[in-house]
Design a binder for these strands. Structure first.
Lengths: 223, 223
DNA sequence: GTCTATAACTAGATAGAC
DNA sequence: GTCTATCTAGTTATAGAC
């Protein structure tokens, strides 16, 4: 994890210091000066490595995403149902992000700005977004019973949108250990599995086509 | 609109100046100093009336909400179907907020913080939230065919949540004149009407009960 | 050319005088 | 209610060391 070169070590030291201080006293209450001092570097030096306070957050968000990908196979192992797999996937995310929850709001304030590179919808986030959708692909692909072909192609991206919605809820969740978010997932994941299982019903074809074309149209307009 | 007392006049002058500058150059690029200067007051005086730059935005957001309530009966007049009434309601909101769209992101960045009084879910926003749900009540109550009793009680609040989701989308919408958001509403409102119409189907009772209790549980945990 | 340190600048927010 | 002076913290500029 700690890079070879001196610069990479400094960079890691700054992220570590920031993480510790954010956790201890929150995002807004942590000054760049305090981070630099705690990391044993100058203020100017901290800005040499991170162009802004937000970019610093991106640093350990990326770390977490990597760890999420690494540990996903292990938590999916032995789970067949789509709801179980989806719940395990999100539970792992909650577990990894739990320490950051107290200051997640400070982070997501900026992610809420679509013009910000931190936004999950921004061009700058495209690699991270693609990687996240690929994780959903892994959740979907080995599910049993298999996902109906009708919705198979779109499902990972739709589930990623669901994930983003859950994250939004999680950020706002003031309940103890974000129990409300866990409840939300435990109740909605089975609903999703149920609806997906019905995707081949003739009565639902019109609605599925409606939703699919709507998504395609919206994506086209967003470009 | 312009209050009698000198204080109310000053306050209105500050809001007007802020609105003009935000529209002209955006939220971030407009400094409190520029607003104060443009309004012909000192910086300290601007802070006497508005504790923060964000609170200033709340000022004309409240103005808009009042106007929305006043003009709603006129746009609902003659419309029967739930989808048509819902679409008209949201279209009016888009029309009133369109001038603010360019800097809406600066505003919603803070509304995304549940701890902020600007959040629609905050205790400070309770009056505005209740008023907004009452507007949805008006959309629902005279709809024809009438909404099934099974979901009638919860529907206004659920539709308000839908409205908040649409607003989130609208804020991020970079398409010309927010056409993507209008498309989203025009396509999803009929889906909502269709689903609501099916609320009395025995096959759906379990899911409706699930959703209702989930909402109730989440609200209980949020308190 | 890669890193580090210090000083200066900007803008949100506050304190205290009138 | 209104002002001026001041503080704080994010960010930038710049100069120097390895």
């Amino acid at each position: 994890m700690t890079g070879r070169t001196r610069g990479e070590q400094t960079k890691a030291a700054i992220i570590d210091a920031a993480l510790a201080l954010f956790t201890e006293r929150g995002f807004d209450a942590t000054t760049m000066r305090a981070i630099a001092e705690s990391a044993g570097v100058s203020l100017g030096n901290a800005y040499y490595y991170f162009r802004s306070k937000d970019e610093l957050v991106q640093g350990f968000y990326d770390r977490t995403a990597v760890e999420h990908g690494e540990r996903l196979p292990e938590v999916l192992d032995g789970l067949d149902g789509l709801a179980d797999r989806l719940t395990a996937h999100l539970d792992l995310w909650f577990e990894l992000m739990a320490p950051q929850h107290p200051f997640a709001v400070g982070f997501f304030r900026n992610a809420a700005d679509p013009a910000s590179p931190l936004s999950p919808f921004s061009a700058a986030s495209a690699p991270a977004r693609t990687a996240a959708i690929e994780l959903m692909e892994r959740v979907v692909e080995d599910a049993a019973p298999p996902v109906p072909a009708t919705v198979r192609a779109q499902l990972p991206e739709v589930l990623w949108l669901y994930h983003m919605g859950v994250v939004l809820f999680w950020v706002h969740d003031r309940s103890v250990e974000q129990a409300a978010t866990r409840l939300l997932v435990r109740r909605t994941a089975p609903m999703i599995e149920r609806v997906v299982a019905l995707a081949d019903l003739p009565a639902l074809q019109a609605t599925i086509v409606d939703l699919t074309t709507l998504l395609a149209d919206l994506k086209a307009m967003a470009g």
